[in-house]
Design a protein around this nucleic acid. Structure first.
Lengths: 70, 70
DNA sequence: CCCAAAAGAGCACTATAATGCACTTTAAAG
DNA sequence: CTTTAAAGTGCATTATAGTGCTCTTTTGGG
């Protein structure tokens, strides 16, 4: 997944849970300003904050070896 | 995956490819200092740098909805 | 069309990630 | 044990992520 997809995934997930940015901010501890910037594709989130958001939204971060297609 | 696992995954992957931190640094554009700090569990990488490292090492970042076990 | 809630943006400041350089420690080979 | 490459660390500086506050824009009901 690339950057944009990651943002889209988080945004979509939040909406599917029907929570506002403000609620996620409060629950996760990531400031509202930071979350807003992130969701609108500005800025460069730190892993700590990404993790907080994912934890709050029930998302899991995975790193896998990329398969080579031929 | 949690923070430590992510670090471990990257470190392990690098070793399995038999490349040094220095080589990864040059290939990825992430500074050697930053990579060293990251691999030794200090610091809080930004997503941009995480992405660079993953790209270089042939790793894929995925966000998935966490399954609920019961 | 109106209104209210939610989302997005400008500005300014603080905290800290990113970085370079020099030095220390560790680990592998002989 | 010695040598040497790779990995880790301290210090200082620069760049930028994180944040609050305020204001604007967008969006979904009614």
């Amino acid at each position: 997944m690339h950057f944009k997809e990651i943002i889209a995934t988080i945004k979509t997930r939040r909406k599917s849970l029907q929570v506002t940015q403000e609620e996620v901010s409060e629950l996760s501890g990531v400031s509202l300003r930071t979350l807003k910037q992130f969701e609108s594709s500005k800025g460069n989130l730190t892993m700590a904050n990404l993790q907080k958001l994912c934890d709050t939204l029930g998302l899991e971060i995975k790193l896998t070896v990329k398969e080579i297609h031929r």
